[in-house]
Design a protein around this nucleic acid. Structure first.
Length: 796
DNA sequence: GTGTCCAATTCGC
DNA sequence: TTCTGACACATTCGG
DNA sequence: CCGAATGTGTCAGAAGCGAATTGGACAC
C-alpha cells in the first residue's frame, strides 16, 4: 500500500478500491474484522510508523512551559485528558483560576481551548490569563444547541437498521440545510443526519461524510471526479432526452445545474422504476466515475452519470448534479462537518451507555479534539474508522490518528493585512518575526521511515513526482548528525537561477511538468526556502512555539546555496523596520512579508487556520502602492449560483492609441459589492451590442456572453503583470505571440471621471511589464554579488 | 497507426 | 489566489 | 442595568490567470 500511495490512479486503483470499499462497507459486508485490526496494532494502515513512546515523552517535556490549565472536574478521564491536550497549546501560564466543579456549562469559555485567541484585546487577555478567550467555533450558543435535541434517531429513520441508507435521505437533508440560514441550526441538522446514520447503518457513515464534503478520498490520494459542466450537460441531455442547447439555456438562467437536473427530471417521469439510490451506491458510483480512464473514458463517465440521473428522484437529481459539478452549495465545509460529527459521536456514545443528554461542554471539547486530530491526520477513512470502533471521542482517537510522516498535514495559512499599522495592532505586545514571502509553490516535505521523501502541495496533493531534484538535493541539507532523521518540513519551492544567484518569477516554476519529471529533463532549477519544522523523529512540533520550531529547523538543516536555504527572516520591533524589511523583500523579487508570532502560546502551528498568528503583507494589499490599471469593460459573462440574474464577470480592455483599438487584458469577477453588481447589470444591459465592434481585439477563448459599448472606465488592482497566450493587449511587444494580462485582478472603483479613450494604454502596459523586472535587476546591481544573502552560511 | 490540435479539466498562485 | 456577505459572539455605548 | 450598536472572526461561495494533462477528433 505504501508503494501504491505515491503513484497515481491507474495501477494503484486496485489497492485503493480495497481500502475505500472495505472501510466503508461498500461490498455489503460490514468488514469489522479488517477494521478492528489496526486499533489493536496501535497504528492503523501503515503499521510501520509507530511513534516511540519515549520520544513522545520528550516532546511533552519540551512543552512543559505550556502546561495545560486544570481540566474541569467531574468529567470522565478521557474527556479531561482531551481538554488538557487541547489546552496545552493555548495557556501561557498555569495561573488561570482553577475550574470549579458545578455548572461548567455556564462558563464554557473557560474550559474550552483557545487554540486561537481573539485578537482584539491581546494585552488585556494576557493580563487576565486569557480566561475570556473564545475559539472560532466556541460559540456557546452552538454547543448548547447541539446538546439539546429531541431527535430519536431510530424513529427518524425510514429504513431499517443495518440496511443501506437511501440517498434520498441525504438529499432531503441537503435541501433542508441549503434553506437554513442560521449556522447553528445548520450544524444541528447535519448532526441529526449523522446520528440517524450511525445509529442505524454505521458503515454508511464514511460514504455519507464524503458525500457531504463532496470529496472522494483524502486529498493526498489524488482522486478527482473529473467531470465538468460540459460533460455533465451532455449526460443530462442523454438521461432526460432533452436538447443540449435547451439545457444550456436553462443553466444560464438558473445558474444551477442542480435545478436544471431536478426540473428535467419532472418532465420526463418514469417509464419503468429503478431501485432507489443508496448513499453507499452513489458514493461507489462517484468513485467509478473518478477512476474511469483510458479509451472512451468520457463515454463511460457519461454513461454512469446518466444511469444515476435516471434512477434519481427530483431532489436526488438536484444534488447529484450539484455534487458532480463540485458545487454542492449546502453552505457547509470541513469545519462544520467536524463540529456536527463531534456532537453526533458524543450523542452516539452516550446512547450506547445510557447517559443523559450530553453536556454542551463535552461536545465543545470533543469538537476541539476532533478538529485537532483532523488537522494532523486529515483522513476521514482513518478517523471515522477509529471513532466507530471507540464509539466515543476521547484521547484514544488522537493516539490512533496522529501526525505521521507520509500523511500530509493541512498547512497553516496566513491572514492578509492591509497595512503595517494593522500588523502592529494585531501583534501588539507579542514578539514577532518577519519573513520574506517568496513567490513560488508551497511544499510540505516528509521524510519517511525508509529514508525517502514525499512532497505535498498546499492542497495536500502528492507532488513527489514533480520535484525529483528536490529529493536529490535534500540529503545535502541535512546535518550529518541527523542524516537519517524523519521530519516534516514546511517550505516554499522557488524557481532559481544558480548562475545569477537569484530567484525567478512564478511563471517559471509553473512551467514545470506535473508528474514523472526526470532529473535529466529539468531546465529550471529550484531552490527550497524552508521556514518551519512540524515533526522531527517521532515528535510532533505543532504545538511548540515558532521560536523553538525554528531553532530545531536550523539545528537539523544547513544551507546549501541555491538548493536549500532558510527563508530570510528578521525578528524586529517596530513598524519602521517592517517597512524597510518589506522593501528589501520586494527588491529580492518576493511578494511581500509574512509576519508571525514568535513565542508564547500563540505561536504554535495551527494547521488550516488563518489565524492572527501568521499575517501576510503584500504590496498590492496596501492601498495606493500596488499596480493599478484603468480598463474598459467591453463584454460580460452571465453569473452563476449566487450571481444569477446579473453579470458575474466582465471582459476588460486597455486602449491602443496607435491602432485605436480596445485590446482585451483580463476578466474581472471580484471586488464589487452585490449592490454594485446589480447596478452594473442594470446599467450595462442598456449598452449591449449585437456583435463586437471591429476595433475590439480579443481571442476566442475569452469570448464573452454579451458585448458591451465602451462607455465606462474601471480601476483595477492587480498583483503582477503576466505574459498571456489568451489576451491580446500589447501583443508581441514583449514576446512574440504573447499579450499582457494581470495576476489577481479585482475592481477597485468605477472611474466616472474618465472617458474610455483615457484608459491605460497598451504602451503603458508594456512599460509596466518591463519595469517589474528592472526592480530586481537594479537591486542586484546595488547589492553587488551579495544579491542572495544567507545568514546561515557561516553556520554550515 | 501516428501525429497534431482543441477543448475540458485540474491545480498552482 | 482575490473578494463580499451572513452569522455568531463579545464588547462598548446609551438611555 | 439591559438592550442596541459596533467590531471581529469564520465560513461559504462568487470570481481571476496560466500552465500541464488528457481524451477525442481529424488528417495523413
Amino acid at each position: 500500500m505504501a508503494r501504491g500511495r505515491q503513484r497515481r490512479r491507474i495501477v494503484e486503483d486496485e489497492d485503493n478500491e480495497e481500502e475505500l470499499v472495505g472501510q466503508s462497507g461498500l461490498e455489503g459486508g460490514v468488514d469489522t474484522e479488517a477494521n478492528a485490526q489496526p486499533l489493536v496494532a496501535g497504528t492503523p494502515e501503515r503499521g510501520d510508523k509507530v511513534i516511540k513512546r519515549a520520544r513522545q515523552a520528550d516532546i511533552t517535556e519540551l512543552l512543559g512551559a505550556y502546561s495545560p490549565k486544570a481540566a474541569p472536574g467531574g468529567k470522565s478521564e478521557a474527556v479531561s485528558s482531551a481538554v488538557q491536550e487541547a489546552n496545552g497549546s493555548s495557556t501561557e501560564t498555569g495561573n488561570a483560576a482553577p475550574a470549579e466543579d458545578g455548572d461548567v456549562e455556564a462558563r464554557p469559555s473557560q474550559t474550552h481551548t483557545a487554540t486561537k485567541r481573539t485578537c482584539r484585546s491581546r494585552s488585556a487577555a494576557v493580563g487576565t490569563a486569557e480566561t475570556s478567550e473564545a475559539d472560532d467555533t466556541a460559540a456557546s450558543g452552538l454547543f448548547t444547541a447541539l446538546a439539546t435535541s429531541d431527535l430519536e434517531p431510530r424513529a427518524a429513520t425510514t429504513w431499517s437498521a443495518g440496511t443501506p441508507v437511501p440517498y434520498a435521505f441525504l438529499a432531503a437533508a441537503f435541501e433542508r440545510m441549503s434553506n437554513t440560514m442560521s449556522r447553528i441550526e445548520l450544524t444541528q441538522q447535519l448532526c441529526d443526519a449523522f446520528r440517524c446514520i450511525m445509529e442505524s447503518t454505521p458503515e454508511d457513515l464514511l460514504p455519507a461524510v464524503y458525500l457531504v464534503i463532496n470529496r472522494l478520498a483524502p486529498a493526498h490520494e489524488g482522486l478527482e471526479i473529473g467531470v465538468g459542466d460540459a460533460l455533465l450537460l451532455q449526460a443530462l441531455a442523454a438521461a432526460t432526452g432533452r436538447k443540449l442547447a435547451l439545457l444550456k439555456e436553462q443553466y444560464r438562467q438558473t445558474g444551477d445545474l442542480g435545478d436544471v437536473a431536478a426540473h428535467s427530471r419532472t418532465t420526463q417521469r418514469t417509464m419503468f422504476s429503478t431501485p432507489p439510490l443508496t448513499v453507499r451506491g452513489v458514493y461507489h458510483e462517484f468513485l467509478c466515475i473518478a477512476r474511469a480512464s483510458g479509451r472512451a473514458m468520457q463515454e463511460e463517465k457519461k454513461r454512469r452519470i446518466q444511469k444515476l440521473l435516471v434512477s434519481a428522484k427530483e431532489l436526488e437529481a438536484k444534488f447529484l448534479a450539484r455534487a458532480l459539478q463540485g458545487k454542492l452549495r449546502i453552505r457547509l465545509a470541513d469545519k462544520t462537518v467536524i463540529t456536527a460529527l463531534a456532537a453526533a459521536f458524543v450523542w452516539y456514545g452516550d446512547a450506547a451507555r445510557g447517559h443523559a443528554p450530553p453536556a454542551a461542554v463535552r461536545i465543545e471539547s470533543s469538537t476541539l479534539l476532533l478538529k485537532r486530530v483532523y488537522n494532523e491526520c486529515p483522513s476521514w477513512n482513518r478517523i471515522i474508522d477509529t471513532l466507530l470502533q471507540l464509539r466515543d471521542i476521547d484521547e484514544r482517537l488522537a493516539e490512533h490518528c496522529r501526525l505521521t510522516p507520509g500523511l500530509p498535514v493541512l498547512p497553516m495559512l496566513a491572514k492578509p493585512c492591509k497595512s503595517v499599522a494593522e500588523v502592529l495592532t494585531r501583534l501588539e505586545g507579542v514578539p514577532f518575526s518577519c519573513e520574506y514571502k517568496y513567490d513560488g509553490e508551497r511544499a510540505q516535505i516528509h521524510r519517511v521511515a525508509d529514508g525517502r521523501f514525499h512532497i505535498y502541495s498546499r492542497n495536500c496533493e502528492d507532488h513527489t513526482g514533480k520535484y525529483p531534484d528536490l529529493a536529490a538535493q535534500l540529503p545535502r541539507a541535512l546535518r550529518a548528525a541527523l542524516a537519517d532523521a524523519q521530519f516534516i518540513l514546511d517550505a516554499e519551492v522557488v524557481a532559481y537561477d544558480r548562475d545569477a544567484k537569484r530567484t525567478l518569477p512564478f511563471q517559471q516554476i509553473q512551467h514545470r511538468a506535473r508528474k514523472n519529471v526526470l532529473l535529466d529533463d529539468i531546465k529550471t532549477r529550484v531552490c527550497l526556502f524552508a521556514f518551519d519544522l512540524l515533526y522531527l523523529d517521532g515528535r510532533s512540533l505543532t504545538r511548540c512555539p515558532l521560536a523553538e520550531r525554528r531553532r530545531l529547523l536550523r539545528d537539523t538543516f544547513q544551507v546549501v546555496p541555491g538548493e536549500f536555504m532558510f527563508a530570510e527572516s528578521s525578528d524586529l520591533i517596530d513598524g519602521e523596520h517592517i517597512q524597510e524589511f518589506m522593501d528589501e523583500a520586494m527588491r529580492h523579487s518576493c511578494e511581500g512579508l509574512m509576519v508571525k508570532a514568535l513565542d508564547g502560546a500563540h505561536s504554535t502551528y495551527e494547521p488550516a487556520n488563518r489565524t492572527q498568528n501568521w499575517l501576510k503583507l503584500k504590496k498590492d494589499y496596501l492601498s495606493g502602492v500596488g499596480d493599478t490599471l484603468d480598463l474598459v469593460p467591453i463584454g460580460a459573462y452571465y453569473g452563476r449560483g449566487k450571481r444569477v440574474g446579473w453579470f458575474g464577470s466582465y471582459l476588460l480592455a486597455c486602449y491602443n492609441a496607435d491602432t485605436e483599438t480596445f485590446e482585451a487584458v483580463t476578466k474581472v469577477g471580484t471586488g464589487f459589492s452585490e449592490e454594485q453588481l446589480a447596478e452594473l447589470y442594470q446599467q450595462h444591459s442598456t449598452h449591449v451590442l449585437e456583435a463586437p465592434r471591429p476595433y475590439y481585439a480579443y481571442s476566442e477563448q475569452t469570448r464573452p456572453d454579451v458585448w458591451l459599448e465602451t462607455w465606462q472606465v474601471w480601476e483595477i488592482q492587480c498583483a503582477d503583470l503576466s505574459l498571456s497566450p489568451a489576451y491580446l493587449a500589447g501583443m508581441s511587444h514583449v514576446q512574440e505571440g504573447k499579450g499582457i494580462s494581470v495576476r489577481f485582478p479585482r475592481l477597485v472603483r468605477i472611474r466616472n471621471d474618465k472617458e474610455s479613450e483615457e484608459a491605460t494604454t497598451s504602451e503603458q502596459l508594456v512599460e509596466m511589464y518591463v519595469a517589474q523586472f528592472q526592480h530586481a535587476t537594479r537591486a542586484e546591481e546595488e547589492e553587488g554579488s551579495e544579491a542572495v544573502t544567507e545568514d546561515e552560511e557561516g553556520d554550515a
